[in-house]
Design a protein around this nucleic acid. Structure first.
Length: 594
RNA sequence: GCACGCGUAGCUCAACGGUAGAGCAUCCGGUUGUCGACCGGAAGGUCGUGGGAUCGUCACCCAUCGCGUGCGCCA
């Protein structure tokens, strides 16, 4: 007898016998007739129990949601008028002749057969139940398809997928490491990789040429909706390539993946912006390109203004007065503008100026300080149409740009221009090679210390490092950084100078990067690559607000696994073997649900 | 570490400072074409925790715990 999945039963099966296994999604007991919706990953099939089949009928009356059963019976067409167009199997049903209860279920702590919102902690504690629900079934399916498409894409181009170790050496800089104590060498520790960066560069030195990996990475930093301590990267590296080579192949990969996994066409070429352009036009180095609303500099309207708090920002390169257009914003209430002002303040601005342009006349938060001419000049510079409003942010260039960029996203949200089912990619390139730590003013890499400067700029290292551009490119989707890549330094002497620039001593370089510096001296090919955040990519593809929705067993925002209740203390025996003494008592397991 | 929001029945949520309630789920009974079945009934609460103000609190104040979002952090 053929086995059928719950979603596979079709009109072509009518008249045949079938065996179907699944979970009881719902029972509808009509007394003289019982319906069971049987569910598996594939779908739902309706089983009908008739009193004539005495044994099966009696069992049917005892079935409850999430019991696991095997039914056998005749697939038949549903009586006319009782078809269910909501189900793919809605034309047919199984007249059950025999039912075996394979497992009983307790009453689940939340509804498994509905998509209703449930407290996320509860979902995480009972993740195996949450996984049965359609949302995660769908998301994990999409994730599989995306990862498979990526692997197929690189396989066809003769990349090798190579696994790199998870127990590696701690290197300074960057995020905090997760560490694992060594039993064999008490007092020493492995670190878990923050990314396979150095390893993939060594694969290039090793003559692999084209490498890819779906790699697990670990960073001991605080969480966000799109960031967990443990995450997955697509890691790619190639030898004898330039920036354009890498960007082309990664762009092709996105197009292929979207087509094959999602059935969507991404229009090419994907727009390319310089870092400076992205900041000026969108106030962000990861602009959301789903909508226009570009930022406009309206400082010219305030040239020679007597308004003190604007005059200081109205000229020169150090300051800006930036307008964000709010289409239809003229009809907003005073309360709405107050809320926008509050938002601007939380973004770091001192305040917010708004000007409304209804069909007749104008209104503004600083109406007393403005005249018709100035207001009209601002309107022209800001590109406002009748019915719009302009939100003005004044301040030091970086701050004003950043706040305006965030206001732009807020306006985009309010006018519904950021739908999760639209995908707008862009490249951002020509990043500065270095930036200053805002607190210490120390020089630091914008990307990482292995990034190569733009060709021919090496000499600037001694004279004006902050003028140097990097061969560094980001792929951005809907305002999220999907991934970063760069052409790496393959000259050991230049790499040494970069490390020294960041204040690493010869000794530190030798201790931490000795193996890497050695390798560069044995014929390292020019190379470069990229890494994407797979969780983020799938999250966006699924239209989900958090990467937890596309990971089977995620940690929560406080880095706990609520299902396993990890992390947890270990035994004295384990500590002794590892040569560890605890200074602090283990933190109490913080799971409120246990 | 900081800011904001949330915490009431198994789930999702209500409740003007004056007797804690609804829908769904659960349990029982009825029910032969439902598919969020239906009808009738029952059971289910330390209002996160601890203080305080008040004649009186789920509601107000303080502290604390948990969860979420953001900031810091994330080469």
């Amino acid at each position: 007898m053929p086995k059928r999945s719950c979603g596979a039963l079709a009109a072509t099966d009518i008249g045949t016998s079938a065996e179907i296994n699944g979970w009881v999604n719902r029972r509808r007991d009509h007394g003289g007739l019982v319906f069971i919706d049987l569910r598996d990953r594939d779908g739902i099939t309706q089983a009908v129990f008739d009193p004539a089949q005495t044994a099966a009928f009696e069992i049917a009356q005892t079935l409850r949601n999430e019991d696991v059963v095997r039914i056998t019976g005749l697939a038949r067409r549903r009586p006319a008028g009782t078809e269910n167009s909501k189900l793919s199997t809605g034309e047919v049903e199984v007249a059950v002749e025999r039912v075996d209860v394979l497992a009983r279920s307790l009453v689940p702590p939340f509804p498994v057969n509905a998509d209703a919102d449930v407290d996320e902690s509860l979902r995480l504690k009972y993740r195996y139940l949450d996984l049965r629900r359609s949302r995660l079934q769908r998301n994990l399916t999409v994730r599989h398809k995306i990862v498979k498409a990526i692997r197929d894409f690189f396989d066809e181009r003769e990349f090798l997928e190579i696994e790199t170790p998870c127990l590696i050496k701690s290197t300074p800089e960057g995020a905090r490491d997760y560490v694992v104590p060594s039993r064999v060498y008490p007092g020493t520790f492995y670190a878990l990789p923050q990314s396979p960066q150095i390893l993939k560069q060594l694969l290039m030195v090793g003559g692999i040429g084209r490498y890819m990996q779906i790699a697990r990475c670990f960073r001991d930093e605080d969480q966000r909706a799109d960031r967990l301590p443990e995450f997955t990267q697509l890691d790619v590296e190639m030898s004898f390539v330039d920036e354009a080579d890498v960007m082309t192949i990664m762009e092709d990969c996105i197009v292929y993946t979207w087509r094959v996994a999602l059935g969507l066409e991404v229009s090419q070429p994907i727009p390319r912006l310089t870092y400076a352009e992205a900041l000026a036009r969108f106030g962000s180095d990861k602009p959301d390109m789903r909508f226009e609303l570009e930022l406009r500099d309206v400082a010219a309207a305030f040239a020679g203004t007597p308004i003190n708090f604007l005059a200081e920002h109205a000229s020169g390169d150090a300051s800006r007065i930036i307008a964000v257009r709010y289409p239809g914003g003229a009809s907003l209430s005073r309360r709405d503008f107050d809320a926008l002002t509050e938002s601007a303040k939380t973004f770091g601005a001192g305040g917010l100026i708004w000007i409304c342009y209804p069909v007749d006349g104008w209104k503004s938060s600083i109406a007393k300080l403005l005249d018709d001419t100035t207001v009209e000049t601002i309107r022209e510079l800001g590109g406002a149409e009748p019915g719009d409003a302009l939100l003005l942010v004044a301040g030091p260039t970086q701050l004003a740009s950043d706040v305006a960029g965030k206001l732009r996203l807020l306006v985009g949200d309010k006018i519904g221009h950021r739908p999760t089912d639209r995908f707008a990619f862009c490249w951002v390139k020509d990043f500065p090679l270095f930036e200053r730590d805002p607190e210490t003013q120390a020089i630091a890499p914008t990307h990482h210390p292995f990034t190569s400067p733009a060709p021919g700029q090496e000499a600037l290292l001694d004279t004006d490092p902050f003028a140097m551009r990097a061969q560094h490119y980001d792929l951005v989707l809907n305002g999220f950084e999907l991934g970063s890549g760069s052409i790496r330094i393959h000259d050991p002497e230049f790499q040494r100078r970069i490390f020294q620039l960041f204040g690493l001593s010869e000794q530190t370089i030798a201790d931490r990067f000795g193996f890497f510096m050695d390798a560069l001296q044995y014929g390292a090919p020019p190379h470069g690559g990229m890494a994407w955040g797979i969780d983020r990519l799938v999250m966006l593809a699924c239209g989900e607000p958090s990467i937890r929705e596309v990971i089977a067993f995620p940690k929560n925002q406080t880095a706990r696994d609520l299902m396993m209740d990890a992390p947890s203390p270990i035994s004295q025996e384990q500590l002794r073997e590892l040569g560890l003494d605890l200074k602090a008592k283990p933190a109490r397991g913080a799971n409120p649900l246990t």
